[in-house]
Amino acid sequence: MSGSLPVTSLLGFFVTSVFTRWWEMFRNIPWPDQTAILTTSFIRGQDRESKKIRETVIRNVNVVIAMTFKKLSPSVRKKYPTLRSLTSQGYLTAEETLIIENLRSRTSVDMTYVPIVWACKTVDKAQNDEYISSTHNKIDLMTEILDIQSKCMELSHWTMRAVPLAYCQVVAIVVYFFYLSSVVGGQSLEPERHLKGHTNVYFPIFTLLQLFFYIGWLKVGESFTDPFGDDDDDFEFLKLLERHRQMSKMLSEQKPGDLPKAISILDLHVAAES
């Protein structure tokens, strides 16, 4: 029976397919760290205006991530059910919320592009106002911002490419049918007694172990099919969103005193010896 049903090949292909899909989703989760680092490095100055520019750019990037996570994760959607809830948590200003709501009333197009446009325009204005030293730095920063938008869009698109339910059902049916047929087919007859229908029933320990391995393999594959839920093995978007917010705030509030003095390797060795 084990040779007639390609259970191992079928399960292997199933788990490989869903894990590859899961890994691509994980790789497309946006992280604002690099954008925050470049923003802090390229937008110069410690005056109020330069700090406001940095905070605006990083905040707009986090708004895009929050809006994307809100579409995908039930836990994030429960905590931030509306744009107003994002406003109350400091992601959006009242004016920005009103602009997005007005745009939504006119079109059904996804609004996550709007904060990205704001961030890019803020960077462009910063370069015109000489807060950014060169066009090359501006392009690098805009490229990072657009990469965040690209990852958010790609992550959203995965919800449109769900694993077919029939595929999961077929694999599960094959595994359970293989187990039942192995248990029944594994019973041995006693030919010396020549009694039709008489069987020698035994406990199929190796078949049972094989079932445990296959069922475990199947459950692993099923856990990868939809990582956007509230299960323990799903992506923790709510914690990730809070982590992004804290990290962005820390990176955008760097002061000149946070940068250590430059020192040569020779001076470092001398200081260590002394």
Score class of each variant (00 low, 15 high):
G3M: 02
P6D: 01
T8I: 15
V15P: 00
T20E: 10
T20K: 15
T20F: 12
R21D: 09
W22E: 12
W22Q: 00
R27E: 11
A36S: 14
A36D: 13
T39V: 12
G45F: 12
Q46F: 10
D47N: 13
E49R: 15
K51M: 04
K51E: 08
T56D: 06
V63I: 03
I65D: 11
M67R: 14
Y80A: 04
P81M: 04
T82M: 12
S108M: 04
C120G: 01
T122E: 01
K125L: 15
A126I: 06
N128L: 03
D129H: 13
Y131F: 10
S133E: 12
N137R: 06
K138E: 06
K138S: 05
L141Y: 06
M142I: 13
S150F: 13
K151R: 15
W158I: 05
T159Y: 08
M160R: 11
V163S: 04
C168H: 03
V171R: 05
A172W: 08
F177H: 12
L180I: 14
L180E: 06
G185D: 04
L189M: 11
R193T: 11
K196D: 02
K196I: 11
G197F: 01
G197I: 06
H198I: 06
P204W: 10
Q210Y: 09
W217T: 11
L218Q: 04
V220F: 10
T225Y: 05
P227G: 10
D230P: 00
D230E: 07
D234H: 01
D234R: 01
K239C: 01
L240V: 05
R243H: 14
R243T: 05
M247L: 14
L251S: 00
K261D: 04
S264D: 05
L266M: 09
D267L: 06
H269K: 05
S274T: 13
